[in-house]
Write a protein that binds this DNA or RNA. Structure first.
Lengths: 205, 205
DNA sequence: GTCTATACCATGATAGAC
DNA sequence: GTCTATCATGGTATAGAC
């Protein structure tokens, strides 16, 4: 009956809580904050969600599931591992640049003070995507451990976004460093070739 | 007069607040928590620190300054850039593995909801070290932008530690992936050689 | 489904005695 | 320098009317 409408309201609420939790984390957001943002009283909130924890969990899952299923599709498409890797990095930088809430929630989840809660969230939201990335990493065995390589690839991309604000106070910073395309090019080049003076350069001038 | 003793007490307090803020962040720690941990009343805390913010700021600076000056010394020693880079990564992985509080505080700082406060902390605690790392990165110009390369190197190392708990729920995880030496070897190899099969030089131009 | 009202506890911070 | 006592505020959550 009203199940459909309830679900609709819940979804509407989650759409508004994503930016709140993304910006301030679990401890930094009060139920009063949430209620005000939505335009309800705190009491009404408790009609839709059992408690703050459930609201938080559903918010994170809501924000993640859309993105990660899209990502999985990108990673799983094609055959050449390096091409697939590049496609993923391009997609990933674009998404992190666009969806700041998604990126920040990832950071908060990794810092969750409740270890079991965090591991549950990771499992429910990232596991599938990680498996795909790791499958990609299998292509570079035995030179690299696929699990470690997956973490390296993700971290390499993510850290440029985690430090967006911090980097502004550091020397050598340019606004181009924040652009997804620039980051993607940099990461892809570094992953492909590493630091060693690559192929003896043809005369590029 | 009692300045010396005051300073001593302050330092003792900071030694105890580091693990608290490292584990739960600014919002997750109350002045009562701190007071109990130290064995004082909350009121006594306010004799030593103006407010919670000052306590937090001094805690972070206290935890960081020791580490970063040590790091700077490592980076600045030697001449061969690749050797220096390897020395830094070895030191960095060892330190992050040993000093979990240091690693977690870094994460919290990057998520600080107060942007000005975060940028101030970064500037006061990381700038010098970053400059040194970036100096290292200059050696790989123009192939890589030194600023971006520095972030990549730091992120590549740090992310393995940020995900220590999360990785336990992901397939392919081994306990060896948490060992500083394993991480260092992996990161160094990836940075040196990249993913491409190391090819003998071709002179095809 | 949302409201008003409220219980009850935790929080940051201060005043003033010792 | 640390205490006891206290305050104002804000926190999660519930009861019950509409």
């Amino acid at each position: 009956m009203s199940n459909k409408k309830d679900h609709q309201t819940r979804t509407n609420i989650l759409g508004l809580t994503v930016p709140l939790f993304a910006q301030s984390g679990f401890d930094g957001v009060s139920m009063r904050d949430v209620a005000e943002e939505i335009g309800l009283t705190p009491a009404a909130l408790y009609y839709h969600f059992k408690d703050k924890e459930q609201l938080y969990l559903e918010t994170v899952k809501y924000a993640f599931q859309k993105k990660t299923t899209a990502a999985k599709a990108v990673v799983d498409m094609g055959s050449d591992p390096l091409k697939r890797l590049e496609a993923f990095i391009t997609w990933f930088t674009k998404t992190l640049g666009k969806e700041k809430d998604f990126q920040k929630l990832m950071q908060w989840v990794l810092l969750d003070t409740d270890k079991a809660r965090m591991q549950n969230l990771i499992k429910e939201t990232f596991r599938d995507l990680f498996v795909s990335i790791q499958g990609l990493g299998e292509s570079f065995k035995p030179k690299y451990d696929p699990h470690m390589l997956s973490i390296s690839i993700i971290g390499l991309v993510v850290y440029h976004f985690e430090t967006t604000e911090a980097r502004k106070t550091l020397p050598g910073n340019k606004s181009s460093h924040d652009q997804p395309k620039t980051i993607a090019r940099h990461v892809i080049s570094l992953l492909r070739n590493g630091l060693m003076p690559a192929q003896p350069t043809l005369h590029t001038n």
